[in-house]
Every structure is written in structure tokens, then in C-alpha cells.
Design a protein around this nucleic acid. Structure first.
Lengths: 261, 261
DNA sequence: ACTGCCAAACAACCCATGTTATTCCTACAG
DNA sequence: CTGTAGGAATAACATGGGTTGTTTGGCAGT
């Protein structure tokens, strides 16, 4: 029970009770933290990929630069997220990674994951669950981009962030910080920044979203979710620790009574 | 060296040399094959999710029905693919699954995967690599939908299938079968079937794609790839068995000399 | 206080794609 | 041989969102 502040450990504990041994393994993924500055690019597409990293502090996003000069933002990462799984099977990065805020990140090499596989079935399963959930997020984003109008896309984007923040325990009565420019939001939603602005204006008139600089306020989150056709199953249903019941054979240290959810 | 015809074993062997024990484990994922008919829906959104399945024969696709009546096709599965990973952490299906062709599929429960985690680090790593590659496919599809014109989307879609088929060893001098209707293609690309038709017509005039019923012919695959801004790294770079060098501690059976690729 | 910079708002115009409807073709059942 | 149904091609029209350019307002550095 060393530094219980680790967000990775908190994240993993959501899925499953962890033994002390497991926690020690997880701590090894957070060695050598590095301070980063807002806007800093941690890696670019095509860079050599032999590491993951965990985000301890700050937000980040992954992106692809298109040859027509535009850019697609693929995922938003928040503290506790593990970044770079996509390239586990690859030798090059497929997407860039950049910091939004100042923050702190920790690198660890791919082979460190092999240690985890070898040592803890529980952690392996949780990792799988995390990747699975991550894929669910991506899928939802894909549907969002392919099938919905600009209003719905933006509503969905905002509401997803709102939900994710709520899940990590922030109180938030509809208020939160969204440290993205309209251009970045457009890059995430496949829209021009002009149209993002238009859409925000429209939301303001409808009293759905009030935005001032980076402060967001949702007077009526429910209505926003409906507009976006938001189905939160892909966010909320994911904390079922079914699989841990099967993996309890390796419980070597007694104190695994952290109730999950 | 039982039935060496198993497509799962072939798939896994692409990533890493497998011990006999590993192969035996994999075979257990292909027990109880079930014959399926073209068009058959194997599961719907919201169904209970406690199984994966592997596709032994035929093509399948996953989809989401939107409340406006439209439908988004998310992924195409071909023989050897494992389906349903997305819901490992969930209790419900997030997407439906339907067969395109007649085919054969095999179900196995989530907890069978725990056996794999417990028993074979190699297979665990390969599974991770497969999921990672799968995520790369999804990411690319996302970029495709968000940022490209209808022509580019269709070109990308066709060329991706062409490449995937080539990788599984079909000879294919630009000819292949694509058993999808224009409406299904539209559902996959976020386009109306009418516009898919328009775009095919345009491709025909440009001598880029000749389509007759379900037979496709690409007179100039290179040109198509360029139009689509196709970067094949996300398909081809994925067979680097780096991680196996670290996992060789469990090699209990001598005959692991299946050369990878 | 002055200057310069950048995010954001707004307007005018344009084009890619959606929508609807009609016709044609082929497969298939009787 | 005929009737029917689904896939595909094509045309006419509608519209959401992109593009470009201008204006505004806040903030940082001097």
C-alpha cells in the first residue's frame, strides 16, 4: 500500500480486486515519470514504436496527419489511460501523440508487458478488458463520425467527455473544463472549425451548451444526450469483473478485498 | 499436428512459432463448429455477451442499427478472424453480427480465454497482437470515414479488401470476389447506395474498378491505392514477432520450428 | 496604454452527397 | 413462358457543411 494515489492502480481496481503483487507490477509501469508541456508532441506517425506510456497527469490526444494538410484526432486520453496499445504488434507508430495540457507521463517498454502476462493472470485479464473497452470507445466514435449530423457529433462528443469525467468521480453539476480549441474539436469530429463555431452558437441559442473559453456548462445534460442519440452502455457496462472469478488461483496475498464497484 | 487446416492456427502462426501445447489450446477454440446461412444474424445488439466466436468459413460483418433506421457496418470478418473481443469487458453485445456468405463458425465462452492467459504466455501475446492489429484496422476505417471523399472511401475500402485477400495467400491478379451489395457497401462507408452506384460508375469510366455482380477486377491496383491515399503500414507491418523472443521460457514441446512467414 | 496575435463569430457562396423516383436487368418461382 | 422481386443505373432536385474572407474581442508583451 505504497502510493495509493496511482491512477493506474485506481483504474485497474475498477475492474478487479488486486493483490499486493499485482500492485507492485503496476507500479513498475509508472517508473520514470516525465513532465510534459501543453502542445508537446510525444511521438509522430512512423516513429519507432517499442514503448507504451501511461498518463499520470494532463490530457493527451492521438492524431493522424492527412496528406491534404488536415488532421484527424482519434482519441482523447485522460489520467490513468494507457497509450500506444495499438502499436503492440507494429514496429512503427501509426498515429502521433500530443499533450493538450501540461502533464506527466511514464514510458515503459513493450517487453514489460510480457512480464505482466507471465506473472499475473488477473492483470492480463484486466488489460484485455481495458483494451476491449477502448475498442468500444473507438467503435462508438466511428459510428458517430459516419452516421450523424454535425449537431449530433458535437453533442455526442461533449456528452461523452462529460460522462467520462463523471465516472472518474468529479462532482460536476454540468460544469467542467474542456481544454480544446474549436479547431481541435473540429479535427476530432471531421468538421471545419467554422462549422464547430456555428454549431456551438446554435447550441447556445437552444440552451443546450454554454461555452466560455474552456469552461463548459450543460444546463440540461439529458437533452444533450437525447439529441446525440447517446447510448451510454459502451461506457458504463464495462466494469463487470466476471472474469476475475475464474482467475483467483493466483491470489497469494490476503488483502484482496477491494470491492469492485 | 492434427488438423493442420485450422485457420486460427495458421493465423496465429503468422505472429509466432507455436508449441504443440499451444496448438492444442487453440484447437479448443474451434470445437463445436456450426453451419450458418448467408444473411443469418448470429447475434443482435444488446444480446447477452459471454462468448467469442471464430470464423472458419465464410465472411461476416458487425453492425449497429441506428434509430433513424439506417445501419452502420463496422468491420468485415474473414476466415481465421476472432469475433466478439470488443465485448470481453461487457455483459451485452454492442454490435450485431451477421453472415454474408454461408459459412462455419465456432463459439467458445469468455472464460476459455482465461485458460489461455493462464497457460501460455506466447498465445496471450499473440492475442494481444491480434487485438492490436484489429484496432489499427478500426482506426484506419475511422480516418477513412471522417476525412475522405466518397471516391476515396470506396477506393480505400476495395483496396483494403484486396490487400487482405492477398495476404492470406490468394493469387489474385487484381481479380477477386466481393459478396456485398452496393447497399451494404454504402452502410459500411456511410454513403447512400445511390452514391455508391455513382462512384462505381465513375470508377468504371476511369478504368480503376470493373465490377460485375460480385466479381471485382482492378486493372491498376496501384492507381487505386494512390487515389485512396492508402498507406499499407497498418496491414503489413504487423507480423513482427518481436515479443516472442521474450516469451520462450515456456517452450515445453520441442517442435516449435514453424517458421513465421 | 499601445500593439499584435489568435480564437471565435458571422456572412456569402459553392459543391458533394442525400433523397426520391423511374427504368432496366437478371434471377427465380410457378 | 410469364410474373415478380431485388439489385443496379440514372436523373432531377434539395441541403448540410466546406471555403473564404471579414470582424470582433480577449490576452500577452512592451
Amino acid at each position: 500500500m505504497e502510493q495509493e494515489d496511482s491512477c493506474i492502480i485506481r483504474l485497474f481496481s475498477n475492474y478487479c480486486a488486486l493483490s499486493e503483487e499485482d500492485k507492485r507490477l503496476l507500479h513498475r509501469l509508472e517508473e520514470s515519470p516525465i513532465e510534459t508541456r501543453a502542445g508537446q508532441v510525444l511521438w509522430e506517425e512512423c516513429d519507432k514504436a517499442s514503448e507504451f506510456c501511461t498518463i499520470s497527469k494532463g490530457w493527451a490526444y492521438s492524431f493522424r496527419n492527412m496528406d491534404d494538410g488536415s488532421r484527424q484526432i482519434l482519441e482523447l486520453f485522460m489520467p490513468g489511460d494507457i497509450v500506444g496499445m495499438r502499436e503492440f504488434a507494429f514496429s512503427q507508430r501509426l498515429t502521433g501523440l500530443a499533450m493538450i495540457d501540461d502533464g506527466v507521463i511514464c514510458h515503459f517498454p513493450h517487453h514489460r508487458l510480457m512480464d505482466v502476462f507471465r506473472t499475473s493472470t488477473t492483470l492480463t485479464a484486466v488489460l484485455f478488458a481495458i483494451v476491449s473497452r477502448h475498442q468500444a470507445l473507438l467503435t462508438e466514435r466511428l459510428v458517430n463520425l459516419a452516421r450523424r449530423s454535425a449537431q449530433q457529433r458535437l453533442a455526442h462528443f461533449i456528452y461523452e467527455i462529460y460522462e467520462r469525467l463523471n465516472q472518474t468521480g468529479a462532482p460536476s453539476d454540468g460544469h467542467f473544463r474542456l481544454p480544446l480549441s474549436q479547431e481541435q474539436i473540429g479535427d476530432a469530429l471531421g468538421l471545419s472549425s467554422v462549422h464547430v463555431s456555428r454549431t456551438f452558437t446554435s447550441f447556445r441559442k437552444q440552451h443546450l451548451v454554454l461555452r466560455e473559453r474552456h469552461r463548459m456548462h450543460l444546463p440540461n445534460p439529458q437533452a444533450l444526450a437525447e439529441l446525440a442519440d447517446f447510448d451510454s452502455r459502451y461506457l458504463n457496462d464495462s466494469l463487470k469483473p466476471i472474469f476475475c472469478d475464474n482467475g483467483k488461483q493466483e491470489r497469494q496475498n490476503g488483502s484482496s478485498n477491494v470491492t469492485t464497484e
